[in-house]
Amino acid sequence: MERKSIDGKERRTPSGAAVIRPDLTEALFRALFEEWADVGYAAISLERVAARAGAGKAAIYRRWPGKLQFASDAIERVGVDLGEFSDHGSLEADIIAYLAKTRRALRHPLVRRIVPDLAAERARSGDLAAALDRVAAARRALGEALLDRAVARGEISAGIDRELALDFIPSPLYWRMIVRGRPAGRADIARHAAALVAALKAC
Rank of each mutant, 00 (worst) to 15 (best):
T102W: 12
S171H: 14
A53W: 03
I114L: 04
R134M: 09
G8L: 04
R186H: 11
K57I: 14
G89Q: 11
V115R: 03
D117S: 08
A27C: 06
L132I: 11
V19R: 14
R134P: 03
W36P: 02
V49L: 02
R122N: 15
A195C: 07
R48A: 08
K67G: 03
V39D: 11
A100Y: 05
A97T: 11
A55Q: 07
R153N: 07
E163W: 12
L68N: 07
L68A: 11
F70V: 00
L118Q: 13
W175I: 07
Q69R: 13
K9G: 02
R12D: 11
F29L: 10
F70Q: 00
G181H: 05
G16F: 09
A97S: 14
G66E: 06
D23K: 13
A194I: 10
A193D: 01
R186D: 15
A93P: 05
K201L: 07
R52F: 08
T13D: 14
V197N: 06
V197H: 07
G56Q: 10
A187E: 15
I156G: 02
D7P: 03
V179M: 08
P170F: 01
A138E: 09
A152P: 00
Y41R: 03
I160D: 00
V179N: 05
D127K: 05
D167E: 06
D73C: 09
F85L: 11
A93S: 14
S90R: 08
V111W: 06
D38P: 02
A158E: 15
Y41C: 02
A198T: 10
A18D: 12
G54C: 10
L128C: 04
A137Q: 12
A199P: 03
P109G: 04
Y41E: 05
S125Y: 03
A187F: 03
D81L: 10
A199H: 07
V151L: 04
R104S: 11
D73L: 04
E34V: 06
G16Q: 08
A120K: 12
L173F: 00
A129V: 06
A100H: 09
A71T: 13
P170R: 01
K57F: 11
A195Q: 12
R112I: 07
A18K: 15
R103F: 03
I160N: 01
A74I: 08
G159R: 12
A141G: 12
A193N: 04
F70I: 03
R112D: 02
D148G: 04
Y174F: 15
A194G: 12
D117Q: 13
K4R: 15
A165T: 04
L106I: 03
R153Q: 08
A100I: 01
M177Y: 01
V135H: 00
V78K: 11
L164I: 08
E10F: 13
I169K: 00
G126I: 00
A105M: 13
A158C: 05
R77M: 05
I114V: 14
E35N: 06
G16D: 01
P22W: 06
L147M: 05
D188H: 08
R103W: 08
R77Y: 09
R107P: 00
A17T: 15
